[in-house]
Amino acid sequence: MNQLAKRLDAARWARLIGIALLLWAAAATVCTLGGSTGTFGVVTYQTAISRLTTNVLPASLIGASLAAAGVAYQAVLRNPLADPYLLGASSGATLASYLWRLPFVAAIPVVGGLSSHAFAMLGALSAVGVVLVTARRGGRIDPVTAILAGVIVNAICGAVFMLLNAIFRDAPGSGGILTFLVGDVQTSIARREVWLSAALAIGSILSLAPFASQLNAVRLSEDEAASLGVRVHRVRWMALGLASLMTAAAVAISGPIGFVGLVCPHIARWFVGNDNRRLLIVATALGAAMLALAELLERLLLADDRLGTLVPVGVITSLVGAPFFLVILLRSRR
């Protein structure tokens, strides 16, 4: 009887994972059909593979990482407004990417030879590291202190970024700092760097999955969670660490892309409720699908010569995500 129950449970999980994968696969397939050359329809195998590897998979990876990180952050920080950038990952990565371009940094031995991707990832991890160390008290991490430390680190990174930009201002007419402030699926990233981000993100998501059930307990009070046998502080450290790794992996190849990490967990809650085990699977798939579709929209907009310019995917996600989030907010208040 017990074995039958286990089998049924396994079948249920397999079905959920299957549906999530199907959802992403459907979105990915649609995304390979359209391109910036203005065509939408059946394409050759080569074109499909090219679009898949250059655009769709990196976009999916970024979306999945941000959404999964959003689930972890919202659960650990017990804050429905928590997003992957709350602990300073994006501002750290943005500052580090900007530093990479500066002549005095390029002249530093060894450090100057690192790629922009390495700089961004190190920047993201350093910022989150500072936040977590600041929020640590007696080996425990306090969610409220973590959020406040995140606000401070974000503010400092932002201020240093603006200071450097005031000193080393780009020539007028160039993209300048705007290219750092709005994220996009960058296509000038080396393949090995995308692979590195992918390995880091997928590894972190898979490592987070076994903790998903304990994330449910973390949302309770510490005493309640402890009574269920959950080591709250260990779970918090693990979840925040893994979520930060995912965010760093994503932000290193895209820059700050807003709203995906915030909105996807909320949309997923409509379908599967508050169980973080289900939420992680569905939100990850939703994030991957959403960003792949947003990236497709970016390519299609470029195809339309009336617009004639690139609309970064970060703009699209914010334009679509913000009103969507407002609707969720209003509905939840009723």
């Binding site: 679009r51 993209g175 290219t179 996009d184 699926v185 960058q186 296509t187 000038s188 470029l302 690139l310």
Partner: peptide, 9 residues
Amino acid sequence: GDYLRVDWE
């Protein structure tokens, strides 16, 4: 496209 986002297709 531009420096960071080249439309390779």
